[in-house]
C-alpha cells in the first residue's frame, strides 16, 4: 500500500497518536452521557477487564464457565476484608485479586486434569459449589441476600484536590486507570515468552509437551493470572455498587461474558473489548431507548446465534474482511477504468 502524499502522512501521524486520541475520547466520554449512562459506563469498563482476563484463559484453549464466580471471589473477599477487618479499600481490592488467584490455583489441581468439554463442565461445577457456599453460609457471606453496605472507595481529600468516588464520573476515571494498567499488563504477558507458550499449548499441546513445556503448569499460570484480574474486576464492582449477592455471579452472568468473547472474537486482543462495548451499547442504549426491556434476552440470544452462524470469527474479523473487499473492489474498478480508456 502506498502512503505517499499528504493524505498518507496525515494518516501516519494519526496512527502514531492513536493512544492520545483514544484516551481523549475516553476522558471526554462521561461528560457526554446522562447520569444513568455514566453508571453503565463504569460497569462497562469493569466488564472490559473481566472479558479481557477471560481471553487470557482461552489463549490456552480452555473455556471456563466459572470466571464470573472467580470475579465474585474477588468481590466477596475485598468486601469482607474491608467490612470485617477494616483494611483500607485499595489494599483490600488487591488482596481480593490475590484471593481469586489463590482459589484458582487450588481449583487447578482437579480442573486441569480435564480438557475441552470436561473442563467446561468441571469449571461450572466448581463455580456452582463456591456460589452455593455463599448462599448457604450466612455467617460471613450473608446468605442469599449477600453483603450490603460495603465500604465505598475512600474519598481523596487534600488541600487543593478533593475527589468523591460516590460520583460515577470519578469512579469511571478510577476504573479506567485500574483497567488500563491491568490491560497493559495482560498485553505484555501475552507478548512475552509465557504468552507465546500459551498459544503453543492451544494449537499443539502434545508437541509443546514433547519439547519440554509443562502444559499443566502453564495452564495453571494462565488460569491464576486471569483469575487475579477477574478478582480485581470483582473488587472494583463490589466497592462501586456497594452490595454483592450470589445471584449476581450466577451462570446467567457467565453466559454474557461468553457472548461478549464469542461475538467479539478471541484471536486478537481487541476482539473481546469490541464485543463487550458493541453489545453493551446495543443492549443498554439502543434497546432501552426502544423500550424493549423484556425482549432484551431474546434479542441477545438472536444476536448470539446469528453471530455464531454468520460471523464465526467474531466482530474482530469484520474489519479485515471489509478492507480486503474494499481493496478488491477498488482494484477491480481501476482495472475496469483502464479498459475503458
Amino acid at each position: 500500500m502506498s502512503t505517499a502524499g499528504p493524505a498518507g502522512s496525515i494518516r501516519r501521524a494519526v496512527w502514531r497518536l492513536r493512544w492520545v486520541f483514544l484516551f481523549a475520547i475516553l476522558a471526554a466520554l462521561p461528560y457526554m452521557l446522562s447520569y444513568s449512562q455514566q453508571e453503565i459506563a463504569v460497569l462497562l469498563v469493569i466488564n472490559v477487564l473481566l472479558v479481557c482476563s477471560y481471553r487470557l484463559l482461552t489463549l490456552t484453549g480452555e473455556w471456563s464457565l466459572g470466571h464470573v464466580v472467580i470475579m465474585g471471589v474477588g468481590a466477596y473477599a475485598s468486601a469482607l476484608l474491608a467490612k470485617q477487618f477494616g483494611i483500607p479499600v485499595p489494599l483490600s481490592m488487591l488482596l481480593g485479586g490475590c484471593m481469586a488467584a489463590a482459589i484458582a490455583a487450588l481449583l487447578s489441581f482437579p480442573l486441569f486434569r480435564m480438557k475441552g468439554f470436561y473442563f467446561l463442565i468441571g469449571s461450572f461445577a466448581a463455580g456452582e459449589i463456591i456460589r452455593l457456599i455463599w448462599k448457604r453460609f450466612t455467617d460471613p457471606f450473608g446468605g442469599p441476600k449477600g453483603l450490603k453496605r460495603i465500604d465505598p472507595f475512600p474519598d481523596i481529600e487534600t488541600g487543593f484536590l478533593s475527589i468523591d468516588f460516590y460520583e460515577p464520573v470519578n469512579y469511571y476515571f478510577l476504573s479506567l486507570v485500574v483497567v488500563s494498567v491491568s490491560l497493559f499488563i495482560l498485553y505484555r504477558i501475552e507478548r512475552s515468552r509465557i504468552g507465546l507458550t500459551f498459544h503453543a499449548i492451544h494449537w499443539q499441546d502434545r508437541l509443546a509437551e514433547s519439547v519440554g513445556v509443562d502444559t499443566f503448569r502453564y495452564r495453571t499460570l494462565a488460569f491464576v493470572i486471569a483469575s487475579f484480574f477477574a478478582g480485581i474486576a470483582g473488587g472494583l464492582y463490589a466497592h462501586y455498587v456497594g452490595a454483592v449477592n450470589p445471584t449476581r455471579f450466577s451462570v446467567d452472568q457467565m453466559v454474557y461474558v461468553l457472548v461478549w468473547a464469542v461475538v467479539g472474537g478471541t484471536t486478537t486482543f481487541h476482539g473481546p473489548i469490541l464485543g463487550v462495548v458493541v453489545l453493551t451499547v446495543i443492549n443498554e442504549i439502543v434497546l432501552r431507548a426502544l423500550g424493549l426491556d423484556t425482549a432484551r434476552p431474546l434479542i441477545y440470544g438472536a444476536i448470539l446465534i446469528l453471530s455464531v452462524l454468520y460471523l464465526p470469527h467474531g466482530l474482530e474479523s469484520l474489519g479485515p474482511r471489509l478492507r480486503t473487499r474494499w481493496q478488491l473492489w477498488r482494484s477491480g474498478s481501476a482495472a475496469g477504468g483502464r479498459e475503458l480508456a
Binding site: 453466559v255 457472548v259 440470544g301 448470539l304 446465534i305 455464531v308 452462524l309
Partner: peptide, 13 residues
Amino acid sequence: IASIGFLLILQTL
C-alpha cells in the same frame, strides 16, 4: 453457544 442463545429466546417467549 448457539444453544445458549436459543435458551434465552425460549425463556423470553
